[in-house]
Write a protein that binds this DNA or RNA. Structure first.
Lengths: 227, 227
DNA sequence: CCGCCTTATTTTGTGCACAATCACGAGGAG
DNA sequence: CTCCTCGTGATTGTGCACAAAATAAGGCGG
């Protein structure tokens, strides 16, 4: 009920359920980076056969959340420092583009963006990190939807969700949260003004700051790779 | 033997074979945009059961070459003019980034890039479009590899291959081919010089030109959507 | 003659079983 | 004591069969 809000009515299919569950478990850190994804174990836990589980795992691999070695099974992806740098460079490029396009596309739901800012800021003290993370993701997704029609949203989703595997959100100090919230407000203002360059600049600054947080988290933890 | 050169040793698995075959058929225009992908038909044609076919189709959907409607089957993707605009914007952003990074990463295989230019230009008169297309794709892939470590290559591959569904390569006139080849040479020079801005500019110009060609092709054909 | 409901066929989704392959461990030779 | 080889267990890949659902066709009523 935390992460699968983007798959609302498709929950009928068993494969979709398993996919959503595994996705949530990975993003919540229940399944740590590098841990194996055994089909039979998951099938037993979910009360289905291996067939939907296989499909769910393949979909996770397509989402960039798992890696499959032929005849050897799947593991949750593990990113090293260089990988995270590459990911954040791509986030800057893609989300910057999305922000710029959102500013001029006229498809941005400004009321919703304002509301999401309000709700995030209401959760500041004491910080409810899981809820903030979810709302933050939804805020960014709204910008992606406004900036792209078909491909951009799912393309950028891959890059945005990938670093969440490391579950680094809890590293945000209240001061960092304040800065992040202020940048969100700035971004909405830039989009509202229809200023593409401004929007791109704000998004770039926003993500550069986030990169620092993740970098600190990775260097603090010695190695996120599992046994 | 034309498109699956990126899956060299993994051809042992039936699912990989089916995936490569379908991918080639889609990219070669044998399966037109909008046409259905019936599992049993493909399974019979490939001499396997439906299980690997299902996995192959799901992978095609993840590649952005097919679309799956639950309980209704899969069809080859069909892009309208707006979709193609979005795709080319993303190509400019992502491949421009790749070119810029390739110029400064020191991971570019300059000999290979030069060789690919030579081979393409050798096929100019008379134009061997399928071979040129393949070499062109390989040239771009080399730039992607040099510009990104893990995520960028497969991310940009999705956006680059997607428009090929429309099979618009044959629209290139000899004059357009010359311009394209010259831009390739420019790009290699920019990478060789280590000039990121130059490389990005050349790539942007290169893709803007390609966009025009595709735009002409789409407006010429009334509707690429199949029955 | 047109529209709606019922029925039949096709096609996808899932469960289950067997085969192939890989990892691990025991055993023996050098 | 170390390294290589062979067997055993575990896990994935594929084939096959049944069930559910959607589409298409046909008949009935208005």
């Amino acid at each position: 009920m935390t992460w699968d809000d983007d798959v609302p009515g498709a929950g009928e299919q068993a494969a979709d359920r398993v996919h959503a569950t595994l996705r949530a478990e990975i993003l919540d850190g229940v399944r740590t980076a590098g841990s194996r994804l055994r089909e039979e174990e998951i099938a037993a836990a979910q009360g289905t056969s291996r067939t939907p589980v296989r499909e769910a795992i393949r979909r996770l691999a397509a989402d960039g959340l798992a890696e499959i070695a032929p005849r050897r099974g799947a593991v949750v992806v593990a990113w090293d420092a260089d990988d995270l740098d590459e990911l954040f460079d791509l986030r800057v490029v893609l989300e910057g583009h999305a922000a710029a396009r959102a500013a001029v596309s006229g498809r941005a739901d400004l009321d919703r963006l304002h509301a999401l800012c309000d709700r995030m800021e209401a959760l500041r003290t004491p910080p409810d990190y899981p809820a903030i993370t979810r709302l933050n993701l939804e805020f960014h997704r709204e910008v992606h939807r406004a900036g792209g029609r078909r491909v951009l949203p799912e393309l950028v989703a891959r890059v945005v969700e990938a670093p969440l595997v490391q579950s680094t959100i809890r590293r945000y100090t209240p001061a960092r949260l304040d800065r992040s919230f202020a940048q969100h407000r700035d971004l909405v203002a830039a989009i509202e003004a229809g200023d593409a360059d401004w929007a791109r600049a704000v998004m770039t600054a926003h993500l550069r700051a986030a990169r620092e947080v993740v970098r600190d988290a990775v260097t603090a933890d010695p190695a996120p790779t599992g046994p």
